[in-house]
């Protein structure tokens, strides 16, 4: 056997590692469920998931619940990207803007998105905007912070070089600062996506009629553990899918 094949075999085994870890996780879950009544088995959960795909739970099917949550997360995410990148660039680029506004941001940043819920209800009511607002607060912070660090930590040699090569202020922003900070911005966007999913559960506590968070709250009220597990698995799976897509996108837009 040549050296290449010797190395190729362990590499193939390495690819199976995620599958092995999933199997181990399911086994532990199954064993734990056998020991107590407080946890449904993976098989029961899978059966419930299959049933919920076709039969309505709380008046709509599972895919409707997923879609409702997804729309809230993505709407908030789009707003968070626009606001986070804009403010992050301003914080990183303008010393004056940074000194003027950053202390306020630092003051607001540690407040958890959930703590805003009462105020948001008072301001925006209990409709869709309030749910999107909670997700927005959760998503905007990682994007803003990462954009700010990406811009402020950009090697000054790049800026000096671009200036001396003839770049004006606009070209500096579009041809140097934004592409230079892009890896950091993308990291912020990736974190923000997960953060948005975390917040949507809290947001759907506000008089929602559909959504995965709502499903969890309803199932908790009726003591339906299997449905809670189904919703939790779906949140994890959708987020995993988005993270995977994001990693692929990162390779395309940021190949360096």
């Amino acid at each position: 056997m040549n050296g290449f094949s010797e190395r190729a075999a362990p590499r193939r085994l390495l690819r199976l590692l995620p599958l092995l870890s999933l199997l181990a996780f399911l086994s532990v879950w199954h064993l734990a469920a056998l020991c107590t009544d407080l946890l449904a088995t993976p098989l029961d959960t899978a059966k419930a998931l299959a049933g919920m795909l076709f039969f309505p739970t709380s008046k709509v099917t599972l895919l409707h619940h997923v879609w409702a949550s997804l729309c809230r997360v993505l709407a908030a995410y789009a707003l968070a990207i626009a606001a986070g990148v804009l403010l992050g660039v301003l914080f990183g680029w303008s010393r004056r803007f940074h000194d003027y506004c950053y202390p306020i941001f630092e003051l607001l940043r540690p407040i958890p998105p959930i703590a805003w819920i009462p105020l948001i209800i008072m301001w925006l009511g209990i409709g869709e905007p309030s749910k999107i607002a909670v997700c927005f607060i959760g998503s905007v912070v990682p994007i803003l912070v990462n954009t700010y660090f990406g811009v402020s930590r950009l090697d000054p040699t790049y800026l000096k070089s671009a200036k001396i090569l003839g770049a004006g202020q606009r070209a500096l922003l579009t041809h140097v600062i934004l592409p230079g900070a892009l890896p950091s911005i993308l990291t912020g966007m990736k974190v923000a996506l997960s953060s948005g999913w975390v917040c949507v559960i809290a947001a759907e506590m506000i008089a929602a009629r559909k959504g995965l968070g709502y499903l969890i709250i309803r199932s908790m009220e009726s003591g339906d553990m299997v449905h809670i597990l189904v919703a939790m698995i779906l949140i994890g799976s959708v987020n995993f899918l988005f993270s995977w897509l994001f990693s692929k996108l990162e390779g395309v837009v940021c190949p360096w």
């Binding site: 090697d155 070089s161 001396i164 140097v176 230079g180 940021c254």
Partner: peptide, 18 residues
């Protein structure tokens, strides 16, 4: 530098990685 054609090569690499 705004009107004249100057250029500068730094000690450390300044090639844009992107």
């Amino acid at each position: 530098p705004k009107t004249q054609n100057l250029s500068f090569v730094f000690q450390e690499s300044s090639a844009f990685p992107w």
